[in-house]
C-alpha cells in the first residue's frame, strides 16, 4: 500500500505497450494532464455496465470491451468534438461506491474527487436500476454536475422492465438519458445533453 500515492508515476516507461496488448489501450496518467482549456467528462459506474463500449462509441478510440467485470483497470482518455469544442472523455474502472474497497476502484474515485471534471456521466444497468442509484445519490451529494445514462434498456425491456426517463430525471434533479449503447440507441441524445455542459466556442470560430 505504500505505493498507493505514486501509482501513476512509478510505472516502467514502456508499460503502455503491454497494456495495449490487452486493450487497456492508450492509457495515460490523468494527473497533470487535464488542461483546463477543454472540457472533461468522466464515465463512471459499476463494473460491466458498458462504460468502455460507450467510451468507444463516443471517442472512436478502442479500449477492450468484455462481458466480464473488471476488464478496465486504468483510466483511458479519448476525445470528441462536441458543439465545436474538444471534449475529453475518461473511461474508468468500475466502482460500486465513492468509498473504494480495492485499488482499481480508487482510480475512478480519485478522478472524481481530485480532478475538476466538467461532467460526470454515471452509467447504470437498466436491469438493476435501484441497486445502482446508490452511487448516483452519492455523486449528486458531491455537488458536481452529474448526468445519468440508463444503459441496456433493450435487455431490460426483454425482461419486462421499462424506465420512465422523465420521472427519473425529475426525482433525481439531473438529466437522464436512456440508452442501448451496443445498438447505438440514445447516442445522439447523450451527445446533445453533454453539449449543454460544454462551453461552446463555435460562434467565435465562424465569424
Amino acid at each position: 500500500m505504500n505505493c498507493h500515492n505514486c501509482q501513476e508515476n512509478c510505472c516502467p516507461k514502456n508499460k503502455r505497450n503491454f497494456w495495449n496488448l490487452f486493450g487497456v489501450g492508450s492509457k495515460k496518467s490523468v494527473k497533470n494532464n487535464v488542461t483546463k482549456s477543454q472540457s472533461t467528462v468522466a464515465l463512471v459506474g459499476s463494473p460491466n455496465v458498458g462504460k468502455s463500449l460507450l467510451f468507444n462509441l463516443l471517442t472512436g478510440t478502442y479500449v477492450t470491451v468484455s462481458n466480464y467485470p473488471g476488464t478496465t483497470v486504468e483510466v483511458a482518455r479519448g476525445n470528441r468534438i462536441i458543439a465545436g469544442s474538444k471534449v475529453s472523455f475518461f473511461d474508468t474502472p468500475g466502482m460500486y461506491s465513492l468509498i473504494p474497497i480495492t485499488e482499481e476502484e480508487s482510480v475512478a474515485r480519485d478522478l472524481i474527487t481530485d480532478e475538476q471534471v466538467d461532467l460526470i456521466v454515471h452509467v447504470v444497468d437498466a436491469k438493476h436500476l435501484g441497486r445502482m442509484l446508490n452511487l448516483t445519490l452519492q455523486l449528486i451529494e458531491t455537488k458536481l454536475p452529474v448526468l445519468l445514462v440508463v444503459n441496456m434498456i433493450d435487455e431490460a425491456e426483454r425482461l419486462g422492465i421499462w424506465i420512465n426517463e422523465n420521472q427519473l430525471s425529475h426525482r433525481l434533479g439531473i438529466p437522464v438519458v436512456a440508452m442501448a449503447a451496443a445498438q447505438k440507441v440514445g447516442l445522439k441524445k447523450l451527445i446533445a445533453q453533454v453539449a449543454d455542459y460544454v462551453p461552446s466556442n463555435s460562434l467565435s470560430l465562424t465569424y
Binding site: L129, G130, R131, L133, N134, T136, L137, G160, I161, W162, I163, N164, Q167, L168, R171, L172
Partner: peptide, 13 residues
C-alpha cells in the same frame, strides 16, 4: 431513497 426512486420511475411487468 434509491429503491423509492426506482419504484417510482420503472415499470416492471
Amino acid at each position: 431513497i434509491a429503491m423509492d426512486i426506482d419504484r417510482d420511475a420503472t415499470v416492471n411487468l
